[in-house]
Design a protein around this nucleic acid. Structure first.
Lengths: 249, 249
DNA sequence: CGTTAGGTTGAGCAATATCAAATTCGGTGG
DNA sequence: CCACCGAATTTGATATTGCTCAACCTAACG
């Protein structure tokens, strides 16, 4: 856990701004609103803590300043499927309706620092006042959906090796867009068990697939840090589609 | 193909209204707007016709009056994964942004009759004028997302039998909500190949799993018509979660 | 009737799961 | 500094699920 915490950048204050600025050029006031968010009193969640249960009412969007979280569902016999991973700078619970209910459980995967951000929803709903930020939120939602569609294909039609490669490429893409990856290296605090629950595989098989990637010199993964050593084979296997920033359903 | 066409109800005119009315009580004017939609000049697509390619610009929402379509993605070697199935009364391409790009290919699975519905988007964006309809569209979007989340769990963590059961329950639920299912019987025009591409299975395995369900007296499936003969085992295997109508992310 | 799309069947195989037992590693208390 | 602890990772052996290939069947359609 402390290893995870220390893997978080000290610059978390501007991760949020950087993320949204990568989606649309922001005006000064809009940027200030985001900066203010990261100075609000933070809420902290420990790994495995359930932040929100499926079916509960969503009070306000939650913006993650540091740490990783996820949305997930469980089956009656304990099988677990992660729907998506939430990275620093991501927002959950941005929804048009007044009192939406959570469609999934939300849980922390590492120590998470986050803030409630009703302001973000307000800005989104007031495009006249916050045109670019509002647009950026729309694009963020579209991106989230695009990643979800990629997840469906990954689970439905890709092999274990391909799934892992695809997920790694997705992580790198998302982390890089908020300044959390350098030269194909980034913090990767997920356990193999969590990877298994994302990719619809068993832990043992995730382990063996990771070893294969190491053996073939494609990645290095040590102490919660992942480095891409040889991209081409990973890119080829993954068929990862970076969402065009202008794209959406 | 003609078998598919004949399996479409003659009542397609009010499927759309019935679908949205099931989400929120509509005012007279809102209902009229929907009725008008189904009297617009229709566009018709033959099975397998690609209606919209991934990455193309989405001009206006498309509302399906009759027939089944899907959103899908393909991998380089031809593997195909259906993201979701679009039934009569469903709308695609409702998006907040001005000129969104399609995140997936959209294709007809049977003969499809549909209308372009910029009015629907306009009504959605004008909640002051169309409060209930706007709310119904929000709910429809939330429902679509809920089904997508179920799809992720299905693909990631359920067995072939469970996936098929889950999909059957989803279809019944969705068709019933627009008056297209009676007593657990409904038109099911999908080939086993399409089922395979939805459920992430091979055609052969879909065939065998269907046979197992027949052998165990759970379903009857003949001539594009599916009947539920014994719900309990299917319900138990599926763990299908009907989206609470008030629920959303 | 021939053709074709869809469905069915069997045999063998590959991918992945399961089970059980090490082993490693960071942290923690003595 | 050492011994220990629990979580995470690794390994081996075996079992199972679902896939591939190849054929065959059937019904609709021209």
């Amino acid at each position: 856990m402390t290893a995870y915490a220390s893997s978080q950048p000290l610059t978390s204050a501007n991760v949020v701004a950087q993320r949204f600025a990568s989606l649309a050029p922001l005006a000064e006031g809009e940027r200030r609103l985001l900066d203010m968010l990261s100075r609000k009193p933070r809420r902290s969640f420990e790994p495995r803590a359930v932040r929100l249960a499926e079916g509960a009412e969503v009070a306000a969007p939650l913006v993650i300043l540091s740490g990783w979280a996820c949305r997930m569902r469980e089956l009656a016999d304990g099988r677990r499927q992660l729907i998506d991973v939430m990275l620093p700078g991501d927002a959950a619970g941005v929804c048009a309706r007044a009192r939406p209910l959570a469609l999934t459980t939300v849980a922390a995967l590492t120590t998470v620092r986050a803030v409630d951000a009703p302001e973000l929803k307000a800005a989104w709903r007031a495009p006249a006042q916050f045109p670019h930020l509002s647009e950026a939120v729309d694009l963020a939602l579209a991106q989230d959906e695009a990643f979800l569609l990629g997840h469906v294909v990954r689970l439905g039609r890709q092999t274990a090796f391909e799934r892992l490669a695809h997920f790694i490429m997705e992580l790198e893409h998302r982390l890089a867009s908020r300044g959390l990856a350098n030269n194909g290296a980034f913090a990767m605090p997920l356990t193999q068990e969590v990877l298994a629950d994302i990719l619809g595989l068993s832990v043992v098989h995730v382990n063996r697939t990771l070893q294969q990637m190491r053996r073939e010199g494609l990645i290095e993964l040590r102490q919660g840090r992942l480095s891409l050593l040889n991209r081409e084979p990973l890119v080829a296997a993954a068929e990862f589609r970076a969402p065009v920033s202008a794209a959406a359903r």
